[in-house]
């Protein structure tokens, strides 16, 4: 994840409390989505950014996961994400995100 984005995530977790922050990603593949989730839950796996060694455990979802789709207004979702739902490998994304959350998320309900 971009170093500046990591810095912002860390600041928001400090400011609002990690239990009040949710990260929503839009990565194009399961692996990249999983890397982003791992970064904000278990720390930067590439050891490059401000989240290196910081286990925030934030709740993190991909916008194409069913939990997100369920909560978002259906028309808006269709307009904004509908086509990408057809294009992306949603099953792969769900699998990656679920496994990262199961292992590292401290604030996932």
């Amino acid at each position: 994840m971009d170093l500046e984005n990591q810095r912002r995530v860390k600041e928001f977790a400090d400011e609002f409390g990690p239990e009040n922050v949710v990260v929503v990603v839009g990565a194009s593949e399961g692996e990249a989505a999983g890397l982003a989730a791992e970064t904000v839950e278990a720390g930067d796996p590439t050891f490059a950014g401000p989240l290196t060694g910081v286990q925030l455990g934030l709740a993190c979802y991909h916008i194409c996961e069913p939990q997100m789709k369920e909560e978002v207004d259906a028309d808006v979702y269709e307009d904004q994400v509908g086509m990408m739902e057809m294009v992306l490998d949603v099953d792969d994304i769900v699998e990656e995100m679920t496994s990262i959350r199961d292992e590292f998320c401290k604030y996932c309900g």
Binding site: F16, N20, V22, V23, G26, A27, V40, C64, V81
Partner: peptide, 16 residues
């Protein structure tokens, strides 16, 4: 999951 929470969005140019 989202209601009342502070949301950080990390989109992707080639995803969403």
């Amino acid at each position: 999951i989202l209601a009342g929470k502070k949301i950080v969005v990390i989109g992707d140019r080639d995803g969403v």
